[in-house]
Write a protein that binds this DNA or RNA. Structure first.
Lengths: 113, 113
DNA sequence: ATGTTAGTTAGCCGCATGGCTAAACATGAA
DNA sequence: TTCATGTTTAGCCATGCGGCTAACTAACAT
């Protein structure tokens, strides 16, 4: 399925990992350098680096280097497409419920005749 | 990172694939048998089956067999944890903004002395 | 009973992912 | 300059993923 929203796939994939989610949650409280992010994970730095680049590729975080320390910060708008997708999904589903209501109504009218 | 929410990982991972998302969108309009779901994807049945089991494992769809045809239906509540996580995330972020406001206020008070 | 249709299972293939170590940079401190 | 610190790069390994074919089962239709 060649799809038009690679963003969504990147986003969902980035969010699918507990380590990455915990990094995000940590970052939601404020920017932090790489090593500080690595500490609570118990993982080695290169591993954490890769998680960070996945997050950055998905647009969920932004990083900048000051001296020799790289600071990471969350990009809160990045979650918008996810939210939008969820809303669309719910809308379609509710549309379906509405149509089901109509259908039931029609049935009841039929029966009332 | 041993995490306490395997659901979230399963959910996000299930949603990370365009084929699976399109199947979900299709199902949001009403239940459908496997072959009907497979048709628009251009993929072989076993492949689609695997996608379906990923979706089912994540609790996003439910299936039932009637005769020799298996009908798949969406489970709309399944997206709730995702929505909840997004909301929590946003809350933390906004909390951070609030604290930043406080901080700025404090700074201004200091300066006013 | 025989064929057709709808799923299912088994197993192969290539690539991506998530972990690691070891070695290389780059910068700030002594 | 030399050393310590904070990444960064390269490369290895096992596992998992997404695609396939081929072969098997389970209903329904003739």
């Amino acid at each position: 399925m060649a799809k038009h929203e690679p963003d969504l796939s990147l986003l969902f994939h980035a969010l699918a990992d507990p380590t990455r989610r915990s990094i995000l949650t940590r970052l939601a409280r404020g920017p932090a350098p790489v090593t500080e992010l690595a500490n609570p994970t118990g993982l080695r730095l290169p591993t954490v680096m890769r998680h960070l680049s996945v997050l950055e590729a998905a647009g969920l975080i932004a990083t900048s280097k000051d001296g020799r320390v790289r600071s990471c910060a969350i990009v809160p708008e990045a979650l918008a497409p996810v939210r939008t997708w969820l809303d669309e999904q719910r809308e379609i589903w509710e549309g379906r419920l509405d149509r089901m209501d109509e259908y039931v109504m029609k049935l009841m009218e039929e029966r009332a005749k």
